[in-house]
Every structure is written in C-alpha cells, then in structure tokens.
Design a protein around this nucleic acid. Sequence first.
DNA 1: CGCACTACTCAGTGATGCTATATACTGGTA
DNA 2: TACCAGTATATAGCATCACTGAGTAGTGCG
Lengths: 109, 109
Amino acid sequence: MGKQMTEMLKGTLEGIVLAILSLRPAYGYEITARLREQGFPDIAEGTVYALLVRFEQKGLVDVEKVPSEKGPPRKVYSLNAPGEKYLEEFWRTWSFLTERLEWLREGGG
Amino acid sequence: MGKQMTEMLKGTLEGIVLAILSLRPAYGYEITARLREQGFPDIAEGTVYALLVRFEQKGLVDVEKVPSEKGPPRKVYSLNAPGEKYLEEFWRTWSFLTERLEWLREGGG
DNA sequence: CGCACTACTCAGTGATGCTATATACTGGTA
DNA sequence: TACCAGTATATAGCATCACTGAGTAGTGCG
C-alpha cells in the first residue's frame, strides 16, 4: 500500500471501522474481509482486532459473543450511543481536514 | 485540538506542509504561523521543524539560509522535483481515502 | 492425519505528532 | 545594566497508532 497510506490511515481507520459498524453490527474477521473488498487490501487482521479492543475499552461499542458454524465464536460489535457521538465527532474533524486540504489543493486562496 | 485531530494529522500534516511549500518557498516559523492562521492553532513548532528536517533528509526540498532582520538566520525551504512528485503521490493517496470515506458516509453502497 | 478456512490474540517494531526545553538574535523598557 | 517579548531553529523523551509475525482454536474435507 505504501508508507503514505499507512500513515494517513492513522486516526482515519478508526473512523472507517466505526462507520462500517454504524451501518450494521459486525465482527472482526468480517470487517477485515470487507475492508479488503473495498480497496484496502493490506489492512492487517491484527490491526482491526486491536482497534476493536480499543473501541471496547473506550466504551464506544457493545459486544456480543455469537457461536459460529465454522471456527471459534464470533465477537459481534455494535455501535452504542457514545460510539455514535464519537463517530459524529470524527466526521466533523474529517470535514475540517478535507476543507483545509481542498483549499490548499486549489491554490491556497 | 483533540486526540482525533492529532491522529488524523499523522501522514496528513506532511502533505499539508508540502502543499504550502508548493505554493511558494517558506521557512519553519512562517509555516507554523500560517498553519495557525488557517485553522490549526495547536500545531507545535517542534512538529514543523522535525517535519522539515525529514523533508531534507528525504531529498524533497532545497534549503537556503537567508539572514533575518529580526533573530537568527532563516532556513528557507523550496519544493524540488522529487518533492513535487511526492506531493502528487500524496494527493492520489488522499483522493483515494476521501472517495472511500465519502462512500461510507453516504451509506456504504 | 494434514490442510484450508474461519476467528481471535498479542509481543515487538517503526513512523508520527506533541511536550518541554534549550539556544540565539534583535529591540524596547524599567 | 537587566529583563522581557518577539523572531527563529533544534532536540530529547513520550504516547498513539498501524504493521509484522507468530500463536491459539474450531470446523470440515481429502
């Protein structure tokens, strides 16, 4: 993917996964697979799981253990109220950044 | 500024400063001041100087020492050819990210 | 049994931005 | 003189984050 993308994902991947969870609840392996389909082929599984642990520690998600037909039980994460708020804040921060960058890209006023 | 912005700036601040340099050459103190005017009040001076050192080490900028009427001599940085290329790559990476995020924001297909 | 796929975990690494401090030069003022 | 504000650069130490690489577990197929 390149170093630029890796660094740019810092802080952004968090928002991406929160956004995915806001669409509907999901578990780690599923999220990783979806990211790979959607243009992020090199997102490491370990990265996603670590993110989900952080979400849980921050109280942004609810967790439910669901048995799987194939393999160990799934940990299904769903965004709760604080999570929604946090995601809204993410979008505000993201919008601010995109506005600043769009402005710079167009010649900086 | 908040932790979200701090993390999101990782990888992005690099592009922001490169974009500022692509408009016209500038020195560290000046760049910091401009960032503060343009909505990033909490960018630390040390952050900018470290960034400029990295640019120099990567060979993305040319440096010229210019005497100042007030204070120590300025180190004026200007984007060179590899720097321009690197900036273009940054914009491509940035565009990819914004497209993915816009898509997610609008409901994820 | 061995292999592939599903599913989660964790220690160690590298890059980045922030904090805090130090250095250096000019000019104003008590 | 002594002090301080503004200009200008540099750097050591810290926290956070994504990546690497390895390990653990369960199911089904050859």
